[in-house]
Design a protein around this nucleic acid. Structure first.
Lengths: 144, 144
DNA sequence: CGCAGTCGTAACAGCAAAGGTTGCAACAGA
DNA sequence: TCTGTTGCAACCTTTGCTGTTACGACTGCG
């Protein structure tokens, strides 16, 4: 499906900021998060920018700048993160319009549309069941 | 997410073959299906080849060649089709290993792995609820 | 006021996957 | 033998993700 890692990295960043704040720090830098996720700070800033637009994090500029949570981890779900960083449907329709003169070509898109909507609704429901607090707890529960 | 249309096109092809056979024809050609789906016959042959490997369709070669269903549409689900034409997980992990010296970097992958597995199981369950017979019925039910 | 550290963002390259296209060998029925 | 179709390789284009560099904007501090 050519899956991407945006949801994973975003969850990683949020868990990292949340834990860091619980350790008494005010803000986390994209540099620190990028080191933990083993990627480039710009990648982190881009993703966190999308999370900020969704109201999940805040950023400060200038010296001592960085990122902080805009809400508690308990109140954020993977659905919030998913909707912030992923766009578009899970399954795509035909790239070109099917033959409308054919019974199947005519009816296939509404049929699949209805089916896909139900499936995506279920997916959203599942994502909404997991909070970032759950994620952080699972992270800390990993055997070392 | 950069969704693709493979599941849609595969369902289209199966519905087309199923309907065509009910109209009394033995086999359908990739040319006919491609016309209905408004794409290239090779694209259809590639997809149907994967469905054949999964035991959903058969092909005949030579003159009068073409494709036919290997089972009834009632016995095929979207999960069968999905597993035949899609590979890999819905959500990807980090492209590079996160910093194992960091608590979050160390625990994030097992944590997300567990969460993603549950979600994908739910997705498979949803896909398994829809048969290709359901799809064809929905297709034929579309207002013209 | 200027310095320093960090964000914000544009620009570009590399890579992978999907989809489209062409070409041709293999096959099998007439 | 001829013909229509599959099987499949090869190649191209497009798209999206990821990584990287570069640099302006911002702001606390000395």
């Amino acid at each position: 499906m050519s899956a991407n890692s945006r949801l994973t990295i975003a969850a990683h960043a949020l868990a990292w900021i949340g834990l860091y704040q619980r350790q008494g720090h005010e803000v986390a830098t994209s540099e620190q998060i990028a080191t933990s996720a083993n990627t480039n700070p710009v990648v982190i800033r881009r993703l966190l920018g999308e999370l900020r637009r969704a109201g999940l994090v805040q950023s400060r500029r200038g010296v001592g700048a960085g990122w902080s949570l805009a809400r508690e981890l308990e109140s954020m779900t993977l659905l919030d993160v998913y909707e912030a960083v992923e766009s578009g449907p899970l399954f795509a329709m035909h790239r070109t319009t099917p033959d409308q003169g054919c019974v199947v070509g005519h009816g296939i898109q509404p049929a699949m549309q209805g089916i896909y909507e139900g499936i995506e609704e279920t997916l959203r429901h599942e994502l909404a069941r997991v909070t970032l607090e759950n994620v952080l707890r699972d992270v800390l529960a990993a055997p070392r």
